[in-house]
Amino acid sequence: MKKIWLTSGVSIVLAGCLIFLLFFYKGHQPSPSSNGGTQGTSAGNAEEIVSNSCISCHGENLQGGAGPALNKVGGKYEQSDIEDIINNGKNGMPAGVISNEEAAIVAEWLSRKK
């Protein structure tokens, strides 16, 4: 009888662990700013940040929308100016949409768009 209880108890614990893993555990998901600096200025990372935070206002191809076009913003602003706008806002652009680290990455990427 003890063997049945023990087997049932272990089965219940294992089933509970499986349910937790299936529905709640997300695994290790590094944020764009926590990559140890190895990919901090890569275009892929900047594009991911822009895709997650900017295209809703600036358009899928940065052609503009609710916000101005950014596809040639590097011809108008220097990298430091772009970073300042991202961090502090300007006109309809709210401040702090992304972190300061992400702003530096995106500003560097956008400054090359001329």
Results as ranks from 00 to 15, higher is better:
L18R: 00
K2A: 14
K72W: 12
E48V: 10
G59D: 05
L18Y: 06
P30I: 03
A43E: 07
A46Q: 02
K26N: 13
G64E: 13
S53R: 14
A95P: 12
C57F: 07
V13E: 05
A95N: 09
D84A: 14
S34F: 07
C17E: 14
N88S: 12
L6H: 06
L6G: 01
L21Y: 12
P30F: 08
V10E: 05
L18Q: 03
C17F: 07
N100L: 08
C54D: 02
A104T: 10
A103R: 04
G37D: 05
V73Y: 03
G89K: 10
S11N: 15
S11E: 08
N87P: 08
T38I: 15
P32M: 12
P32D: 06
S51R: 15
Q39Y: 09
C17T: 09
S11A: 15
I4C: 06
S80P: 01
P94R: 05
Q29Y: 09
D84V: 05
K2E: 13
S56K: 07
G36W: 09
S33V: 11
K72F: 14
P30W: 01
G65I: 04
G27R: 04
K3M: 00
L110K: 15
V106A: 14
W109I: 10
I86W: 02
I98C: 05
E108P: 06
A46D: 01
D81S: 10
S53M: 11
E60M: 03
K72L: 12
G64T: 07
N61P: 02
E60W: 08
G67K: 02
V13I: 14
I55K: 10
W5C: 05
A15N: 12
V50Y: 01
C57I: 08
I105A: 12
K3H: 03
A66C: 14
W109P: 06
E48A: 13
L62F: 05
N71T: 02
P30M: 04
G92E: 13
I86Y: 00
L70A: 00
A43M: 03
H28K: 04
Q39F: 07
Y25A: 04
K113C: 03
G37I: 09
E108N: 12
G44V: 13
V73N: 00
G74W: 04
A43W: 01
V73R: 03
R112N: 02
N91C: 10
K113H: 06
E78V: 05
S53H: 15
K3E: 06
D81L: 08
I86D: 00
C54E: 04
G36A: 08
I85S: 04
L18I: 03
I98A: 10
G67C: 14
V50R: 01
S33R: 04
K3T: 13
E108S: 15
E60N: 00
L18D: 06
N52C: 08
L110M: 11
K113I: 11
L21T: 10
E101V: 09
T41Y: 15
P30H: 00
L14C: 07
E108V: 13
N52H: 11
I85D: 01
E60P: 09
S111N: 02
A95I: 12
I105T: 10
S42Y: 13
T7V: 09
W5L: 08
